[in-house]
Design a protein around this nucleic acid. Structure first.
Lengths: 248, 248
DNA sequence: GTCTATAGCATGATAGAC
DNA sequence: GTCTATCATGCTATAGAC
């Protein structure tokens, strides 16, 4: 709130003492004006538009429509004419914003990765007990998945269309996430609050997978009427059970 | 072996008493000549070629190259000229085999779905105890994922490019798979061998997710040196643990 | 800052020779 | 049954008026 740049998320005030989605939304601003400001910050070098006011407004339209089109028919199969029609911005106008088609995909991946990085670094910087740490990571990750659903879905499905550098960065981020979980498990086992006989790396990987389901299988959860918080409770309890955690 | 048509897989002889991959390979023939015969059966209406001998050979080349190209750059971004170059078959020649580009994708989805259907129907038709039934489904599904990896990966990633009918068929198959797991859980709980307090539908869904990881995150398992059988053991034990199964 | 018009090229598909 | 040649269309991207 003081010296933090526009590209840095606010610190986690009151999180994860209260792991409700409302508390998460309040702690990090991943929607509305602050989100689009972040997009502008990441992407503005590729744009010919300098005026922040109208730029942010059109950026929002472009990204929203990109998600609607790409997440239903595929990014490569979405033509810029489709995007032009959907946004109401002419072809020439579009190029003043996106730089090129692949720059657009690139920006999406960058925004997602930097957001995850900011939120998780923030959580990891706090000195939390293994239990609290695990809880914070699980709930925060799912709330991020939920709030920025189309962003995450896009990154997963269109990953192969990104250039090699970004593709590897995305894979490394997932490996880091696995490793982060692994570390929490280990610390908890050392501290005697968790117990596990088996492959911790596989447990971490399958936890990551369970979290990714929230954006990969949205259709299924919608159909079943499962909410994020219900799913977060399920995922966390399942994990505690696997780790033989005794509640009290 | 007697009245079974070429399009039907042999029944599961000795499966799942022995859940090794070798036993699975022997029970169902999902590779080599029998696989390509299956492809020919599903796809031959769209082809102009009638001669089975050379047709099957070229079909194999076309599908293999499609996987190599589509699974690395995306199906839509793979041009038929790419495919022509990679297979060594001319553009005109290709069209005698594939019908159209989208027929090619369609055939892949059909082969995968009918294979899953055959194998699982076969397992479900046997009268197995909940424990044996669960074990059979987990191991069989993972071995299928493994043996037909590029097929599965293609179906997941390129699902949105299929026509509505096929997309829904694929989703229904996944829901059926979840339901099948759910039923086994329930039967085991009734029989008193499993115990679970929680949402069984979510447990089924997260089990399906864990199995899909084998083809979705191949890069990770390769990097970590995890084999299918190790992963199958992990997945099955994890599930037994969640279901409070007491081994003996 | 936004538009129209168009360049330049790649694509899916087919016709017809052999 | 396989090839070459070609068609019609759609694509990304840019130039230049306003």
């Amino acid at each position: 709130m003081d010296s933090a740049g526009a590209n840095t998320l606010s610190p986690a005030q009151g999180w994860p003492i209260d792991t409700s989605m409302e508390a998460f939304r309040a702690a990090w601003e991943l929607e509305g004006e602050p989100l689009w400001q972040r997009v502008f910050d990441v992407h503005h070098e590729r744009m010919q538009i300098k005026n922040g006011k109208t730029a942010v407004k059109n950026l929002q339209k472009i990204f929203d429509c990109t998600f609607r089109l790409a997440n239903s028919q595929g990014f490569h199969s979405m033509s810029l004419r489709d995007l032009s029609r959907e946004t109401g911005i002419s072809m020439g106008g579009l190029y003043a914003y996106i730089g090129s088609k692949s720059d657009l995909a690139s920006a999406i991946e960058s925004v997602v990765r930097s957001t995850i990085d900011d939120v998780l670094s923030d959580i990891n910087a706090q000195q939390l007990s293994p239990y609290q740490h695990l809880k914070a990571v699980i709930y925060a990750d799912l709330y991020m998945n939920h709030i920025m659903h189309p962003w995450y879905y896009f990154c997963f499905i269109e990953a192969k269309g990104l250039d090699k550098e970004q593709r590897e960065a995305a894979m490394n981020m997932e490996l880091q996430f696995d490793q982060g979980l692994h570390d929490i498990f280990s610390k908890g086992i050392e501290a005697g609050v968790f117990r596990y006989e088996g492959n911790l790396a596989l447990l971490a990987a399958s936890t990551t997978a369970m979290l990714q389901q929230w954006y990969l299988k949205r259709w299924k959860f919608l159909q079943r009427g499962v909410t994020v918080t219900e799913y977060a409770d399920f995922a966390f309890n399942q994990l505690l059970n696997n780790l033989s955690y005794q509640s009290k």
